[in-house]
Design a protein around this nucleic acid. Structure first.
Lengths: 136, 136
DNA sequence: CTGGATCCCAATAGATACTG
DNA sequence: CAGTATCTATTGGGATCCAG
């Protein structure tokens, strides 16, 4: 089944967030979908961190249930499934951007190019709009 | 032991973030510490969501190891322990703010007062500075 | 072939009781 | 007050299998 988060988030936005992606994989799947524009099961399955297919399936189901992704059939190929981010997921881009800035500051190994970081910092709203654009 | 995240984050800021607080409890502990200014084990133990004491202990250990918290002894009471956020944790406030805005938009149950949200949206930097102030 | 489901074992989570 | 110890329940994850 889809993972159960017994935490009751009523009233708390942070708990709501923790419930939505407070696990090791959901945030990474979101990264693949939002930032790398991945759409298909097998593309997601091949992410660098190596997710197991059963876990991916269960997370995708959970993300569908929580309204972060929608599953459709590929118009170009009836046998293919497409996962796309909902508005709710796209609205996480600002938080993702802050996480990128945070990690880039505190992790010596993050390889985000300095000029990209500078551009983001100079105009966050524009950077977010550019990230969203492919989905509009 | 402290939770193991086998995900290798080298080079990816989002994976780094997922490694730091990609679990159900770490983000909630961060909320208690950063937003509600909690300092002691028993205060954290009594959070609304009901964390078990062994889990809390293990998460605190992990957060210390990942440089989000520091543990000191209370100068006013040698037997008391104080957990405080590091700079690294405080630097997560911008992301937290975005999560609060996100959740408030997408969760009908979040009870953040509308005027507070409006203030945050009007001037994020100022809101973040105000949240940080007690720790400086 | 793509998108999963199943099985099975290892690892983690969690409740509760206990302790320095 | 700030944790451990213990024991059980859940979940994670690799390998493999199956359906469209």
């Amino acid at each position: 089944m889809t993972p159960k988060y017994k935490v009751d988030h009523t009233g708390c936005p942070i708990a709501f967030a923790a419930e939505a992606f407070g696990d090791k994989w959901t945030l990474l799947i979101l990264r693949e979908v939002l930032l790398f524009k991945k759409k298909h099961f097998d593309e997601l399955l091949s992410m660098r961190e190596g997710i197991a297919s059963n876990i991916l399936a269960s997370r995708l189901k959970g993300m569908e249930a929580s309204g972060l992704l929608v599953k459709q059939e590929d118009p170009a190929n009836g046998r293919r499934v497409i996962y796309s981010p909902t508005e709710k997921a796209l609205d996480l881009l600002p938080a993702c951007v802050e996480l990128i800035l945070w990690a880039s500051k505190h992790d010596p190994e993050t390889g985000v190019p300095a000029d990209m970081l500078a551009r983001i910092r100079r105009n966050r709203a524009k950077a977010i709009r550019e990230m969203r654009a492919p989905f509009d």
